[in-house]
Structures are given as C-alpha cells and as structure tokens.
C-alpha cells in the first residue's frame, strides 16, 4: 500500500451558507499510487469542490487532507501545486497567447524542475500523450479540444508529479477521444505508478477506473 493522499473527515460549506448547510460532510477517502480513481456524483454533490480542496485551491475547510502524511494546511500550496500534483481541467485552462510547447515549458519553469533541455522534454511529453511534434509551435487556440486536453495533460506531467487530478477531463470530448484520454490516464497510473483522481459523472469513465468514490448530495 503506497498511500499518497488521505482525506480525513473533511467537511466544507460555502461562506454564505447556513451553519449546517454543508456541501461536503465528513469525507474520508484514501488514495494510493498506481491506481486510478473516479469521484462521481450528481451536479451539486461537491465533486469539483472536493477536487479544489485536494488541489489546494480552496483552503477553508474542516478536517484534514494529508499529502504523504503532511497536512496541506501546513504546506506551501503554491509549491504543492507546482511540484506534487498535476491538474487537468474540463476547459483545459491553457494560456491562449502561448503555443503548446510554451505552455508545457512555462509549467516546468514555475515548478523549477531541473531539466537539461526543456524543449526536448516538452516534445517528448506531447508525444507521450499522442501529439505530434509538429503541433508544438501551434497556438493552443488553433488546436482541437482533444489536442488541447492532451497538451493540458502533458503540462500536468511536465514536473513529474505523483498525483494527477482531473476535473471532468473528457466532458468536452467525443467518445473516441474520451477513451484515448482515459487510456493515457490508465497508463500513467498503472505504468508510471501515479495516483490519478478523476472527477466525473461519466459512467464510461467510472467503468474503466480502479476505484470509484461516490458523492451524494448533503452526504
């Protein structure tokens, strides 16, 4: 058991919510390396909120989240985000004024990862996720949705994090592309020993992952 992330009794409610109106209540999940997880639930069940808590984008919660037994509350969350986890969003969240390769290199620069040839590494990452090197210098807005998502995955892998968080990564994609992306995630988990956590409400995704956690409204 290589436990990398632990959610310990986490509860969350919005700032303006009533005292007992929790979006998440006493959540306890464990995540291990080498496995692919899906967090499913209906809209408003708190899937994305949970992902925000895990990624350190939201700090105001009750309970604890541990990354390798270290509470996120005691960690520098910027460093945590640029070194320990990679985040993939449904809407890709790439920088439109940069090309595919620049987006990946920028992520490496921010994480301060030591790479001899960043361009070479970026192209290698793109190839890993099924992109040809000819797309490297293309502005991201000129790429298709599937290609943009692959660039986003390549970016999240650029500093070799142990955890990959994906928020509805296939939400904007067709079925074939969804399968392609899922295959990449599976490879990352099973071959590269990463912990992949996918927030989804897609049954197809849930059927292909190792463990599924289901969030229910007001649970």
């Amino acid at each position: 058991m290589d436990k990398v992330l632990r959610i310990d009794n986490v509860s969350y409610r919005y700032k303006d919510a009533k005292k007992d109106e929790y979006v998440l209540k006493n959540i306890k999940y464990d995540f291990e390396k080498g496995k692919i997880y899906a967090i499913k639930g209906k809209s408003g069940s708190g899937k994305t909120t949970l992902l925000s808590l895990i990624s350190g984008l939201e700090k105001r919660y009750e309970g604890n989240i541990y990354y390798k037994d270290k509470s996120l509350k005691k960690m520098d969350l910027d460093t945590y985000r640029n070194s320990n986890i990679g985040i993939v969003f449904q809407s890709y969240n790439l920088l439109p004024h940069l090309n595919a390769m620049e987006n990946i290199i920028l992520s490496m620069d921010i994480s301060k990862v030591k790479v001899k040839d960043k361009k070479k590494k970026a192209i290698s990452l793109m190839e890993d996720v099924g992109l040809t090197s000819s797309l490297a210098k293309r502005r991201v807005l000129k790429l298709s949705g599937g290609e943009q998502q692959r660039v986003a995955i390549a970016r999240s892998l650029s500093y070799n994090p142990e955890i990959i968080l994906a928020d509805e990564p296939t939400g904007n994609l067709d079925k074939d592309t969804e399968n392609d992306i899922l295959n990449i995630f599976k490879r990352l988990a099973h071959d590269d020993n990463k912990c992949v956590i996918i927030v989804t409400h897609s049954t197809n995704v849930c059927n292909q992952v190792d463990i599924v956690y289901e969030l229910k409204k007001n649970n």
Partner: peptide
Amino acid sequence: YEIGVLRTIGMK
C-alpha cells in the same frame, strides 16, 4: 483567466 491559470499551476 490568465492569472487564474498561472495561479492554478502554482505560480505565486
């Protein structure tokens, strides 16, 4: 949006 992306990928 750019700020959001940069902050999300860990830029201080």
